[in-house]
Write a protein that binds this DNA or RNA. Structure first.
Length: 417
RNA sequence: GUGGGUAUAGCUCAGCUGGUUAGAGCACCAGGUUGUGGCCCUGGGGGCCGAGGGUUCAAGUCCCUCUACUCACCCCA
């Protein structure tokens, strides 16, 4: 038996309602804030991601689906969306049409990692990128939108954490201070953190190792290395969030694995999804556009994982979706099935959802099927009343039924209807 | 890449210290109502017990190998 590729998932008809529900809310809320949807190809030339995300990051160094096409070009299935959006932004000269661009997307992403709960190799994200302003209002707007979508979906057990990483120069100073602080403790660090020491030293803040945590508890704080403008930026973000009544926690240990972040970063965590608990992450990236060959333009954005959100919704039991009921089910009372399809067609032409039996099943079986499909009304054809040119219409909720002329069925209403 | 766990019907799982034809619930199909659902009752179809090897008179059960799935680390949505 051929099976699906590990780390991929089929979305079956029985669960598609959840996806539509989420997608509808995403579209609606982004419309509220005047964001335009963008769709980019599923693959790009490899250097876009290598340069944009950072050669040293885990995503680029070991997780990308990269291959050569028949022309010998190295292409990569997109592992994240920001670089792709920025590429489109530059390629289509967005900045010359409009000085501020607010974009959102819903798209599959690909990363070749070991799958586990809440981690897939093909997964789906929705997210936004706002390019063209360094206003802290937009940092806050992005966070508010993300938070609002998640709470509109019905999630309760979520926690918003925010932090600031400062400007590149400030961060370098901070990294050096950290290095100095950690040097004497080096031997006591976990093996993973020893590697991080020379690679991405900030990630040691994220370590779950007990010894690491102890050492880091008295490590230097990024706040002490921020410039006045950096502090002011972060304060503004926080005050806007406060005014919008979005609850958050400042988490100085929040560092993110993508190289391009500057100033504000944030995550929204779920307490209900196991170990991979970040539903959403994002931040500001004021240097990325220039890195990718555009003009020096600031940006801010986020991405949220749809599969993780579904996990959280399921585990919180937050979703109460009832499948769309069927308007009519056509039942044959005798063997003459010639009419059934054209009666169904008559109703379908008028916009109703209609089903009928294709398996020559008994009346009882057809009724069971109608009930299972939650049909509102059932039409019986081919019975005694056919001689008088009538059909029988039954209202399933109350069991009432009437015999009426065929051309009346789409209009007839029962008292409780 | 590194660890741990699991593998029995379409799904969720029983199957005790090895012992006859391998079970339940749900789902599916049929009947109980010769033209009528939900509840209930009766019956039915479905399993190389993940694969291969070993121990034994005897293996779903014990041992080994492999494979798949799964959780966790790293990292991320």
């Amino acid at each position: 038996m051929i099976k699906r590729i590990p780390g991929t998932k089929d979305v079956l008809p029985s669960e598609i309602d959840k996806w539509h529900f989420i997608e509808n809310i995403v579209h609606k809320i982004f419309h509220n804030y005047n964001y335009g949807e963008i769709r980019t190809p599923i693959f790009e030339e490899t250097p876009l991601f290598a340069r944009g995300i950072g050669e040293e990051t885990d995503i680029v160094s070991k997780e990308m689906y990269t291959f050569n096409d028949r022309g010998g070009t190295s292409v990569t299935l997109k592992p994240e969306m920001t670089a792709a959006v920025v590429r489109a932004f530059i390629e289509h000269n967005f900045d010359s049409k409009q000085s501020l661009n607010k974009l959102y997307y819903i798209s599959p992403m690909f990363r070749q990692e070991r799958p586990q709960a809440g981690r897939l190799r093909q997964f789906h994200q929705f997210g936004a990128e706002v390019i063209g302003s360094n206003s802290p209002l937009l940092d806050a707007e992005i966070i508010i939108i993300a938070y609002r979508i998640l709470s509109s979906l019905g999630l309760k057990a979520i926690l918003l954490k925010i932090n600031t990483l400062g400007k590149p120069l400030e961060r370098e100073k901070f990294k050096n201070a950290l290095k100095e602080y950690l040097y004497p403790h080096f031997e006591k660090l976990s093996d993973d953190s020893k590697k991080r020491f020379s690679g991405n030293i900030l990630r040691i803040f994220d370590s779950k190792d007990a010894s690491d945590v102890k050492i880091m508890s008295s490590a230097p704080n990024i706040q002490d290395y921020l410039s006045e403008s950096g502090i002011a930026h972060f304060e503004k973000v926080r005050s806007v969030l406060d005014k919008a009544s979005v609850p958050f926690e400042v988490e100085p240990k929040l560092v993110r694995g993508l190289d391009y972040y500057t100033d504000t970063t944030f995550e929204i965590l779920s307490g209900k999804v196991g170990s991979q608990n970040a539903l959403c992450g994002g931040g500001r990236y004021d240097n990325l556009i220039e890195t990718l060959g555009g003009k020096n333009t600031p940006g801010v954005g986020f991405a949220a994982g749809i599969e993780r959100i579904i996990l959280a919704l399921d585990n919180e039991n937050a979703l109460k979706l009832t499948p769309e009921p069927l308007d009519y089910f056509i039942i044959r009372l005798n063997d003459d099935s010639a009419n059934a399809f054209s009666v169904a067609q008559h109703l379908r032409d008028r916009g109703f959802s209609v089903e009928l039996d294709y398996l020559d099943r008994s009346v009882k079986a057809q009724m069971r099927e109608a009930n299972k499909l939650n049909a509102e009304k059932v039409v019986f054809i081919g019975g005694e009343e056919e001689k008088d040119g009538l059909l029988t219409l039954k209202f399933m909720k109350t069991g009432e039924q009437v015999s009426i002329k065929p051309e009346m069925i789409s209009e007839y209403k029962f008292p409780a209807d």
